[in-house]
Design a protein around this nucleic acid. Sequence first.
DNA 1: CGCCATCTTGATTTTCGTCAAGGTTAGTGG
DNA 2: CCACTAACCTTGACGAAAATCAAGATGGCG
Lengths: 248, 248
Amino acid sequence: MSQVAQLFGEVSAQQLRAACSGCNLKELCLPLGLGDAEMEQLERLIHKGHAAKKGDALYRAGATFTALYAVKAGCFKTCVISEDGREQVTGFHMSGEIIGMDAISTERHTCNAIALEDSEICEIPFARLEDLCRKIPALQRHFYKVMSREIVRDHGVMLLLGNMKAEERLAAFLLNLSQRFQSRGYSPREFNLRMTREEIGSFLGLKLETVSRIFSKFQEEGMVKVNNRQIELIDTPRLKHLLNGCQP
Amino acid sequence: MSQVAQLFGEVSAQQLRAACSGCNLKELCLPLGLGDAEMEQLERLIHKGHAAKKGDALYRAGATFTALYAVKAGCFKTCVISEDGREQVTGFHMSGEIIGMDAISTERHTCNAIALEDSEICEIPFARLEDLCRKIPALQRHFYKVMSREIVRDHGVMLLLGNMKAEERLAAFLLNLSQRFQSRGYSPREFNLRMTREEIGSFLGLKLETVSRIFSKFQEEGMVKVNNRQIELIDTPRLKHLLNGCQP
DNA sequence: CGCCATCTTGATTTTCGTCAAGGTTAGTGG
DNA sequence: CCACTAACCTTGACGAAAATCAAGATGGCG
């Protein structure tokens, strides 16, 4: 479990609140201990959220960077495209997660963010966030942590891609999703995938056929029930066991 | 070339200067346009550098986080260790690079940083850096960029691990090293590796035997000259060509 | 000078990718 | 509401790539 958390990083309640601040500022206020004046400033920071239809690009590589985005509802994938056209999904992002931080360095986005279902996002103009961070130390510290968490998550994915076998990768993926759904108040046992087998494969460094085969194998072995994109985890302990190189 | 830069990220002159600030603050001063008073504050921020012998751990996973580290001279590897003991090298870090940013999120280090040769580092106490960032907006922005660059670099490694074949990975690795040596004023054509085949393999998601075989193959094909850890790049264009999925 | 870590190379096995065919689902428009 | 289509998924057979196992060779360091 801590393995999984380590692998992908997990959204803290704090991060969740921060991201939701577009809709519910009071939630953000509590952990940061902000006063009324500060809260009002924060309120002005967050643009009113807007909607993205399934398949829409929130931003594309090369676009000039002006804002970060907090996923309010729905699900996005981010992917980098290499010069010769290879696509690597770098992450799947659910409510409460902040995306676009890769663009800060060059002031241009370096990846594409695509909505996997109809979604809602909050735009966070970066220049204004920077100002506010200077004025509110707790917010500054929080934002550093959000960026750092992304780095830790990426390191976990590197471990997965560099060291794990196909079955271990898929087990890690399912357990990570399960945990993220749970932390959002949904069932950790049953959930619907928002992405295709190909997108899962791209993220895990596998081909879609391999992903499909392993789903079937897991089902045969009674660890999960797979019905197209509907997943039920039957034997979570065994999945975790698989992850740890099959040592108890 | 831009492919390689995209793959691993590259140290900007700016980042280099910032990291070197422990030794030469004037260099940092120029791009940020700081005044004398600000410079003095910055000077106080950076502890006097200290030395690390080959094999020393700068920090280990689990250690409480107090400071970032700028590599002043030498070379470090950072690696995450999974629960079941698998080690994944997440990066090799040369002079001018800042490491330890993964620790900001949990206030504990999440990876090990090991010196690959006798090295010198500057300690940057994080709490004081935060303070200073609030006072010097240019520094704040710069630090966000440094963290963002790390995220971009990690995405490049994910692309490498998820999409590339063994030969492409090693070609990317060599070209990246070449570029980094060049930007530090060393020859981009001849250089010495500081890491073992096993460490290269861990970083690239390969076994050491595979790394060794591909070195031999590259040499047979006249692309590089390999003499233990001494590398000479003979046919850089062909290496780049290999990277791009062999399309011109 | 000798030892231990590191590296190379070969033979074999395993894993996963590729190619191919067919089935299922969701979404569209009549 | 249903038929149709395109996207998506599953499964099998085969092949390629890299891991594993094994045996020496080399070189750096005490």
